[in-house]
Nucleic acid binder design. Structure first.
Lengths: 134, 134
DNA sequence: TCTTATATGAGAATAATTCTCCTTTAAGAC
DNA sequence: GTCTTAAAGGAGAATTATTCTCATATAAGA
């Protein structure tokens, strides 16, 4: 599905800003920050307001078109990666790797199907793996 | 090990502020924010500076006496829970539940012992489970 | 008790994010 | 195509968590 239709599919108004922001996230890769997105977009839309970018990002997150990636820095990053995946991170590095592993997903799903958590209904889960790139 | 000895054990100077902060994190539970910690401590040490609290928290995190818990809000929370655990979270709620499951830990460890990730050496991992408390 | 490296206090500075308010525009109705 | 209107965007001020600066105080070992 192309970017325009992703927005339409969620019942969102299609605006040039929304298209540009969603495209930027996908294009930039490695979980860009709001600032990364803003400077990327300003090449094409020099007048876009930072407030607009933050507002659009919130809309996209609310509609599950992008995921907000939290980091141990006081800065948010955004993930346009729609396939189910986990995150690899190394302390001191800003790189956040994506890790796709269907076998792992299935194993965890089977595990939680068998073992219910008392007082909690699981919707989804992400494994945050810390270590070292080499 | 008591709080004083946790500091000594890491080769850190023992100061009243460090003791109070570490105690506050353990005492407050549910992953307090820096602000929670500050207002708790001010009851006993009204003159503690916010900068001191942030600096001490950074020292404690660096020495693995507490963990920094990242959230999708732009605010850091701190975890004095030393036992190995995972996190339960519900969108829209500020509660972060701790989830201890040795069986899960062992299953994941066994899995990653068998299945190496190319270009990445795993140190540790935390499962972030989203869902609904009920 | 003395010395010194380190920690703290106070408050200014910074930086990511949010808010306000006015203008513009997308999208459906006609 | 034009009109209408609710929703979106622009500009920049405001907010707020966190960091920084630097002078003072103190923990810990000699």
């Amino acid at each position: 599905m192309d970017i325009r239709n992703k927005l339409i599919d969620k019942g969102l108004k299609v605006t040039p800003q929304r298209m540009a922001i969603l495209e930027a996230i996908i294009e930039l890769g490695n979980h860009p920050t709001a600032e990364n997105i803003i400077s990327y977009i300003k090449k094409e839309y020099p007048n876009i307001a930072t407030g607009t970018v933050y507002k659009v990002l919130a809309v996209l997150v609310d509609n599950n078109l992008v995921r907000k990636v939290v980091t141990d820095k006081d800065i948010s990053r955004y993930d346009g990666f729609t396939e189910r995946h986990h995150h690899l991170h190394s302390p001191g590095s800003d790189v956040i790797g994506d890790y796709i592993d269907k076998e792992l997903d299935e194993m965890l799903e089977a595990y939680f199907k068998k073992k219910k958590l008392p007082g909690f209904k699981i919707d989804n889960f992400t494994l945050h793996i810390n270590g070292r790139f080499n």
